[in-house]
């Protein structure tokens, strides 16, 4: 009962930025509680990744290796993590509120007979009894709840950007090889094939231009695309097109472009909101953008309240004019 365990995630061998944030968060909580923060790397051949994780000043790094853990098979991962948690009995378990965390955390919590809070914005320790206090948005972000839960380990999934990413230190953490007692019988869902689709990764963009309910015609997104091309040309950076949920509901855009609570949460250098009124569930997805520009016909809309620059205009007039100015 004396450590904080966090789950490491990576993509193509590269450590996920959300994991670095978790490391920072876990270290902070560990200091407060006077216990160590450890990480678990799950997979088949994870030596290199474990080495990298070991350079962030954690107490321990567990290398949970098994051929069945190759790729992400939820059944195997949950089983292996259950085994590990029963071995080391952590006091707190942290995961990112990511594709992996969303699936693994609830099932693991159930198997460990504890409660879980998902999608936390902030974590702190209750000074009275050392319990983990979790801050979580509810009702689409219209309210912020502070909760505590019973059971051990104390388990949460954490939203992206909740902590600053950790930085590397000179000291290396100890790496422990762990061989989970799992076998084929653990797999109850068979993967037949994975079909890659072109997926837009909005969080890789420097500038995101988003359209919302105010865009009256699907074809008008071409204007946004033209604007993106012009900005990209003028600034020499990555500009992508996003949208708010009504646009996805109309099937004009795929959900990978959706910015907001049920879409992607981003913090680009600049966010240009076109015809987005600013429902809170959208705002939480882009509020950390460095500069926010709002274009809307309704001067009283929420988007103007959170923007740095606002233009009260119809996008159909403004964007063509803007294109000329950017090109000129």
């Amino acid at each position: 009962m004396s450590e904080i365990l966090l789950l490491v995630e990576s993509k193509d061998g590269v450590l996920d930025k959300k994991t670095l944030e978790l490391i920072r968060g876990a270290s902070g909580l560990g200091k407060e509680l006077g216990i160590g923060a450890s990480a678990v790397v799950v997979g088949n051949q994870t030596a290199q990744l474990a080495e990298e994780v070991a350079s962030f000043g954690l107490a321990k790094v567990y290398k949970l290796e098994h051929p069945l853990l190759e790729g992400f098979k939820p059944d195997a991962w949950v089983g292996a993590l259950e085994w590990l948690c029963k071995q080391i009995a952590p006091r707190i378990v942290l995961m990112s509120h990511s594709f992996v965390g969303k699936e693994v955390a609830p099932r693991l919590a159930c198997r460990l007979n504890t409660e879980l809070t998902t999608d936390c914005l902030a974590l702190k320790i209750d000074p009275n009894d050392g319990a983990l206090v979790r801050t979580k948005p509810i009702y689409g972000g219209n309210a912020i709840a502070a909760l505590r839960c019973e059971g051990l380990p104390q388990m949460v999934t954490v939203r992206k950007n909740a902590f600053e990413p950790a930085e590397q230190v000179t000291a290396k953490s100890d790496i422990f090889d762990m061989a989970p007692a799992i076998d084929e019988s653990i797999l109850r869902v068979k993967s037949i094939k994975t079909v890659p689709e072109q997926v837009v990764e909005l969080d890789k963009a420097n500038v995101v231009i988003s359209g919302g309910r105010g865009i009256v015609d699907k074809d008008d997104f071409q204007m946004l695309t033209d604007l993106a091309a012009a900005i990209s040309k003028a600034l020499g950076n990555v500009v992508m097109i996003g949208c708010s949920r009504p646009v996805v509901d109309k099937c004009w855009m795929t959900s990978d472009r959706q910015v907001g609570l049920t879409g992607t949460i981003i913090a680009p250098d600049a966010y240009v909101a076109v015809g987005i009124s600013g429902a809170i569930q959208h705002l939480v997805g882009m509020i950390r953008s460095k500069k926010i520009v709002a274009i809307n016909t309704d001067p009283s809309c929420n988007m103007f309240k959170v923007a740095d620059y606002g233009v009260v205009a119809d996008y159909k007039d403004l964007i063509p004019a803007l294109l000329k100015k950017l090109e000129g």
Binding site: V133, P137, G141, N142, A143, I144, A145, A146, L147, R148, C149, E150, I280, L283, V284, I287, I292, A294, P299, F304, K305, V306, A307, D308, Y309, G310, V311, V312, A313, D317, L318, A321
Partner: peptide, 23 residues
Amino acid sequence: VQLMELAPPADMGRACTIIEGST
């Protein structure tokens, strides 16, 4: 659910410069 506190969302407001003038 052990709800300790419930708060409205933090004010996300920024000082918005409205760009005026002709299109």
